[in-house]
């Protein structure tokens, strides 16, 4: 078996990489694919917290590459979804603790056991980035409709290309359609225009308070059938499996908006 290795990256911090990793990983496993999440953000371990698995960590990625424990022993089984496992980052070491060559080797081992290997890349463009992308077949760039996130995303697209990861997927995170409609937030088309033709939109995730609630609880939102952000992540998971899924209509339609449009208080 040879699974697919996907790295989730963004350049800028705080745009939602870890949330994306937790949700697409959980979604893929819930759809029946054996999936492993790798936290490559060494020194700033967070994926375990978002997944609600922080109390089960014994060994981490650095223990594995330095040979202190077997890979299988470091993997933590998810408590909700069958076939989902996590390889946590070390919290005490730094980015230099794993080299790109060691990451390649690790990915090679993991892809023999799993259908999907999803890597949470650290923010920044230094050693940690180069290590995280070293073993990947495909990259997902997470960005927000905001100038600094987009500038960094553009930089990352260039760096990915240099690492032979061409045609990355783009996930537009935290979009607010009310602001887009007012002309106060860039739309998805604006974002793809700016980033150029080489990116393919994999998903559009609305800004949703329930993301914070789900992080508080350590339960990925993709499992919440009532959440719009959860629906957006379920759609992303289906697209990753090769399905054609239409993008959700995120506009807040309804009578009030139409009335506002008529008198010009909304676009």
């Amino acid at each position: 078996m040879s699974g697919q290795v996907i790295v989730v990256t963004s350049g800028k911090g705080g745009v939602g990489k870890t949330t994306v990793v937790a949700n697409i990983g959980t979604g893929l496993a819930a759809a029946g694919h054996k999936t492993v999440l790798v936290d490559a953000d060494i020194g700033l371990r967070n994926l375990d917290l978002i997944m609600g698995l922080e109390n089960r960590i014994v060994y981490d990625i650095v223990d594995v590459v330095e040979g202190r424990c077997e890979l299988k022993k470091a993997l933590i089984r998810d408590k909700r979804v069958e076939g989902l496992q996590l390889l946590p980052a070390s919290q005490t070491r730094d980015k230099t603790a794993v080299s790109p060559e060691q990451m390649k080797e690790l990915c090679q081992q993991l892809r023999e056991e799993f259908d999907f290997v999803i890597i949470d890349c650290p923010a920044g463009i230094e050693h940690g980035f180069h290590t995280a992308v070293a073993g990947a077949d495909k990259a997902i760039v997470v960005s927000m409709p905001e100038v600094s996130a987009l500038r960094d995303a553009d930089k990352i697209v260039g760096l990915l290309e240099a690492s032979e990861l061409t045609d990355p997927y783009l996930i537009v995170n935290r979009i607010r359609m009310d602001m887009v409609q007012r002309g106060d937030m860039l739309d998805v088309n604006d974002m793809t225009d700016i980033l150029g033709l080489q990116v393919k939109v994999l998903g559009i995730v609305p800004d949703d308070q329930s993301i914070i609630v789900s992080a508080n609880r350590g339960e990925p939102i993709v499992l919440d059938n009532r959440s719009r952000a959860g629906q957006a992540f379920r759609n992303i998971v289906r697209r990753l499996q090769g399905e054609e899924v239409e993008f959700m209509d995120l506009s807040q339609g309804g009578l009030m908006l139409r009335l506002k449009r008529l008198v010009g208080l909304a676009k």
């Binding site: 007012r182 002309g183 937030m185 739309d187 604006d190 008198v263």
Partner: peptide, 26 residues
């Protein structure tokens, strides 16, 4: 819309902040 129309009538066309963002980013 009515407001757009009135704005145009009085020559007051304000650029949206997303247009400004797009231009600056480019």
């Amino acid at each position: 819309s009515l407001l757009d129309f009135l704005n145009r009538l009085f020559g007051r066309v304000e650029k949206s902040s997303s247009d400004i963002a797009k231009k600056r980013l480019r």
